[in-house]
Every structure is written in C-alpha cells, then in structure tokens.
Amino acid sequence: MTAPRVEKAVVPPDHLPIWDDPHQALYSQVTIELDKCDGCRLCAVVCPANILEMYGPKDNLKVRLKADVSGCMSCNNCLAVCVAQGVFATEPYDFVGVYEQKRIGPFEFPRRF
C-alpha cells in the first residue's frame, strides 16, 4: 500500500529542505482504520512526533491526525502499540537536495532468511 507522493521541487544539492514545505520535506502518510480503532489513546500517547489526537464523544473516541502539524517519521510506534493494528504509517520521510535518500528500498517488515 503506497500513499500518493508529492512531486519534489528542484533545489540545489546543498540546500536545507524547507521543513514545513510539503514539496521539500515529504513526511509519511498515516493511515487510520477507523472501524478498528477502539479509542484506547495509546498511539496518540506514544507518537514521538506528537501528531495524533483523539476526537469524538467519550464513548466513541477515535484517533485522527492533528490538522496543523506534520512530521511523521514512519517510526510506526503507533502500530507497535495498537492491538487492533488499525493505525500505521506508509512511505518513508524523504527530503530533497542533500537529504534525498539514495540506495534505499521500500519499507519491509522483518524478513526471515
């Protein structure tokens, strides 16, 4: 499952990406499966980027992305604590210019060789 990518801007290779510009600093997409979410809050608590929040009535809490913040690093700590596996990040964070990630393949779960 791949989230749609934002087209990258062309910037000099020594350029620090403008970290709040979605064309220069692409953060991961967080997928939330609302039917699986039971409102336990754990993902919102453990998120290191602090981008998840709870909403809705007390007896039917659900998680969502905060409107004004971006910064998911696809650490997937949310998935690690979610017993229903209803929240996960897709696509790596990626930065243009000097940070453009090279020699890197897609995200994979632990593989047994």
Binding site: V81, C82, I104, P106, F107, E108, F109
Partner: peptide
C-alpha cells in the same frame, strides 16, 4: 510496544 513488529526501510 513489543506486541507487533514494524516495518523499516530496506537498504
């Protein structure tokens, strides 16, 4: 956090 392994980039 140990109940589910997660994905990481391949290199």
């Amino acid at each position: 956090p140990t109940q589910q392994t997660i994905s990481r980039q391949t290199h």
